Amino acid sequence: MLQLSTEGWLLAILASMAIGLAKGGLAMVAILAVPILSLVMSPVQAAGLMLPVYIASDVGGLLAFRRDFDRRVLLTSLPGAVLGIGFGWATAHVVPDRGVTMIVGLIGLAFALNALVRPDLSAEPRQPSSRRGSLWGALAGYTSFVSHSGGPPYQVYVQPLRLPTVIFAGTTTWFFAVVNWVKLIPYAALGQLSLANLKVAAILTPVALVSVWIGLRLVRIIPQALFYRLITWGLLAVSLRLIWQALTG
């Protein structure tokens, strides 16, 4: 089994809780999982360890949101996401992780600052678009493949649609569930799904599943306006953390 220190286990538990809360509807929280674990292991190893936990949590999230999702958003974004994952696989040994981390952070930072400084621009809901969905879906698929950090590009596309809170949460859960299942193939081919990682992931999975239930309860009681403010500020905080990680990693 993968050997983790006491600190490593605590961080792994926190990362699993973040994944579960996100699958329960608290979008953007899961993006903290890999950066948290990267404090005690390489980002590549952290990503491989967390993917089985993501997939197990997806089951709980899909059951919770089995009817609460926007089909148009998924149809316009998932094809691009699959292409993004394929591109990530093809360039896995070429593009440095630090560069991708910086790009994700800058995209998220720009969007969050725009939403906070000029909130009136997003007051009128947009409609799903194949062009925008393909672009941001591809970026989300690529960055999700590299470091499970597809949240910022995905949010740039979906947040301006101003979906109801539960529909936003459910659509996000469905989108990343499909993305995670597709990632299994290249992750296995690249040797990131080792037996040691799978054993640790099996221990962490119950923590994530309990957190799915907690996230589901919270997302259904948080007012919609507050929900979007929280995920915008969350996106800002995570983006700054990713930029810092890219600069100092």
Rank of each mutant, 00 (worst) to 15 (best):
Gly61Met: 04
Gly25Pro: 02
Thr143Asp: 07
Leu62Thr: 06
Val166Thr: 14
Val210Ala: 15
Gly8Lys: 07
Lys183Val: 10
Pro160Ile: 14
Ala30His: 00
Phe65Lys: 04
Arg67His: 15
Ala46Cys: 05
Ala189Leu: 15
Gly137Arg: 06
Gly99Ile: 12
Val53Tyr: 03
Thr205Ile: 05
Pro153Glu: 04
Phe69Cys: 03
Asn197Gly: 12
Leu26Asn: 10
Gly151Pro: 02
Pro35Ile: 13
Asp68Tyr: 07
Met17Asn: 00
Arg131Asn: 00
Trp233Arg: 04
Pro79Cys: 04
Gln224Pro: 00
Ser38Gly: 15
Leu226Lys: 05
Gln45Ile: 00
Leu247Glu: 03
Phe176Ala: 04
Leu14Arg: 01
Leu236Asp: 08
Val146Leu: 07
Trp136Tyr: 15
Leu26Tyr: 10
Ile103Thr: 14
Leu106Val: 11
Pro125Ile: 05
Glu124His: 09
Leu198Arg: 08
Met102Ala: 15
Ile203Cys: 13
Pro223Gln: 07
Gly80Met: 02
Ile31Val: 15
Ala110His: 04
Ala18Pro: 00
Val29Tyr: 03
Ala30Asp: 06
Arg220Val: 08
Ala56Phe: 12
Gln224Ser: 14
Gly234Ile: 11
Ala202Phe: 04
Arg72Trp: 03
Arg220Phe: 08
Lys199Gln: 14
Val44Asp: 12
Gly215Leu: 08
Val219His: 03
Ile31Tyr: 05
Ala81Cys: 01
Leu247Ala: 15
Thr76Tyr: 13
Val100Glu: 06
Gly8Ile: 10
Leu226Trp: 06
Leu83His: 01
Val166Glu: 13
Tyr228Ile: 09
Ala112Lys: 01
Val117Pro: 02
Ala196Thr: 12
Glu7Met: 12
Arg217Cys: 07
Ala138Leu: 09
Val219Met: 09
Pro223Phe: 02
Pro160Val: 14
